[in-house]
């Protein structure tokens, strides 16, 4: 196997020979990919193709059978990551106020209180908050809870942020707002992000690169550049270039669904 401590400049996450099967069913059989640094990568593919499996393995939440995943030559243990779960209701700590939820990862890192407050203030400034962080999570709406969840994952200034279908439990109106919020914050911070989405429109809208997967065992159907200018807005959704990319991605997707 190639020496992964060497990595192409501009690459953040290097995946080589990744293997994983569930009960004898192979999901990944020797999967290779390079994910760029400081960019947003969306992962899209047919149902059950292992999108979430992929980011969970990369994020170190799920063991894999073989292969190697490195972050600029470092292992996951040496890398600071954030993870936003689909189910914000079950990911936040309801016994703590929203603000204390955001404090928590910093506390784990042993950051002193004054420094924690400073960092959180700075983080809050980047968000357009219309609610009180002194409330308990169950007193907030779904979108507000997921915002808290995203803030909690960003407050440690992660090198990589993973998002597993973060907006799929929200209504469309809230999804549009949240997408823009997330885009704004990620671009401002230059964080590498890996996003799983089951919504092609959202996957393209947020991404610099779109990873299209085939049915299992998953292979790369296509790894597309999304050269749309930033910041993107709801008007982007009707832009001819956006529409062209979406049509192409849909074609690749349909081939992937029919194929193998």
């Amino acid at each position: 196997m190639a020496d992964l401590t060497w990595f192409t400049p501009g690459t953040h996450i290097t995946v080589r020979g990744l293997r994983k099967s569930f009960g004898g069913n192979p999901v990944y059989v020797g999967f290779d990919i390079d994910l760029p640094k400081g960019r947003i990568v969306s992962v899209f593919g047919p149902n059950g193709c292992g999108k979430s499996t992929f980011i969970n393995m990369v994020a170190g939440l799920l063991p894999f059978d073989g292969g190697e995943i490195l972050f600029e030559g470092k292992t996951i243990r040496e890398t600071r990551i954030g993870y936003v779960f689909q189910n914000y209701r079950e990911a936040l700590f309801p016994w703590q106020r929203a603000l204390d939820n955001i404090h928590y990862p910093l506390k784990l890192m042993g950051v002193p209180r004054a420094e924690r407050n400073r960092r959180i203030e700075e983080l809050v400034a980047g968000f357009d908050l219309k609610f009180d962080l002194h409330r308990y999570p169950y007193e907030l709406s779904g979108g507000q809870q997921q915002t808290v969840s995203i803030m909690r994952s960003l407050v440690i200034e992660p090198e990589v942020l993973f998002l597993d279908e973060p907006f799929s439990a929200l209504d469309y109106e809230m999804t549009l707002i949240m997408r823009d919020q997330l885009q704004k914050v990620l671009i401002a911070r230059g964080t590498t992000a890996v996003l799983v989405s089951h919504d092609l429109e959202e996957a393209i809208y947020l991404a610099d690169k779109l990873l299209l997967l085939t049915r299992r065992p998953s292979r790369i159907a296509e790894f597309l550049d999304i050269p749309l200018p930033r910041p993107r807005s709801p008007a982007t959704l009707t832009d001819t270039e956006f529409v062209r990319i979406k049509a192409h991605a849909l074609e690749v997707f349909q081939t992937a669904v029919r194929g193998s």
């Binding site: 939440l61 993870y83 079950e90 990911a91 928590y104 909690r152």
Partner: peptide, 28 residues
């Protein structure tokens, strides 16, 4: 809730911290 335990783990909580900060409250 497994998600809560996972969330704590991703944030770097040790087994002991997960016990004290998550499981204790989860079972209250």
């Amino acid at each position: 809730r497994q998600t809560r335990i996972l969330a704590a783990r991703v944030m770097g909580a040790s087994r002991l911290r997960i016990f004290r900060d998550v499981l204790f409250y989860e079972c209250l």
